[in-house]
Design a binder for these strands. Structure first.
Lengths: 160, 160
DNA sequence: CTTTGCGTTTGAGCGCACTCAAAGGCGTAC
DNA sequence: GTACGCCTTTGAGTGCGCTCAAACGCAAAG
């Protein structure tokens, strides 16, 4: 516990418990999915990285261009993705999938680069983002309810 | 039960139960939110409709332009939103919030307009959409796990 | 030596979902 | 009557997140 905490430990635990109780299906094992496979080669070509992340080579270059990841080059000047780069890309992909804009991710990563002094701000950003994800989850649950309603009602006379 | 069903009743019920068991927090009361308030005026101006739906007047005109909703006019030629129009807009908004594209919504609504013969296709569309929502939910839960990991790890040495 | 294949760069192009600008029509208030 | 406010239309503009084109480099295979 240190000065970088925006919430006291009990508050933070409570916040986490709060959403846990709202989300029983969040499997703790999910965290395993955040790790890269152990047998990942040390260096990957852009094509390999693309296949692994399900992004296109275009998109990988784009992410590098806008500063979301830095990638080394091999003797031939070709991009060479190491574990760190891959981990970064996976992280970015998660945030993108949860609707965080490139700009916001960029901002977050700049804070990371500026060192530990920025941790409070990073924490705040993440908490705000978590709240936004929860809003999205609720929206989706509503949408799912609508969808199911449309589905169950067929054979009936629902309009539209 | 009729020929328009793509799944037999038991299959359909099972499909619904399946996702229900994955989503305990889906409150059945949510469906109430799909209904319009009883005290909704019969006719609303575009400004009132915008406020009610949290869309802008611009967006409402846009939705009409691309055929997502049809809206009558009053004596002065101004748009006049009735309950049906409002219900349609709410429905469209839910689908948008769950990531369905304007084009896909448009397609669905065209099917509706073509009459009951298209119900099987509509059902299929909705089921596909439900699957996509569930994928999104899982993505979001993952993202939430990442986010929480980032949050709980502060004070520690996590990178990035 | 040329072809094939995978990579590089810069800069432009695209699709989506809005979002706005311009020019003007009505109806009430002063 | 004229000013104000809210509305109308058409068509163009914007921001995001890619996505692609063009021209070129390098290196192994035939």
């Amino acid at each position: 516990m240190n000065a970088t905490d925006l919430l006291t430990a009990p508050d933070r635990r409570q916040a986490i418990l709060d959403h846990r109780s709202e989300l029983p299906p969040v499997d703790p094992d999910l965290l395993h999915l955040l790790e890269l496979p152990d047998d990942l080669p040390e260096q990957l070509s852009i094509a390999e990285a693309a296949e692994l992340t399900a992004l296109t080579a275009h998109t990988l270059r784009y992410y590098e261009r806008v500063g979301l990841v830095s990638v080394g080059r091999d003797a031939a000047g070709h991009r060479s993705y190491d574990r760190q780069a891959m981990a970064r890309i996976v992280f970015v992909t998660r945030l993108r999938a949860s609707g965080m804009s490139i700009g916001a991710i960029s901002h977050y990563l700049q804070l990371v680069q500026q060192g530990p002094d920025t941790e409070p701000e990073r924490l705040a950003l993440m908490q705000e983002h978590r709240a936004s994800i929860q809003r999205q989850l609720r929206e989706l649950q509503l949408a799912l309810a609508v969808t199911d309603y449309k589905i169950t009602v067929y054979g009936g006379t629902a309009a539209p």
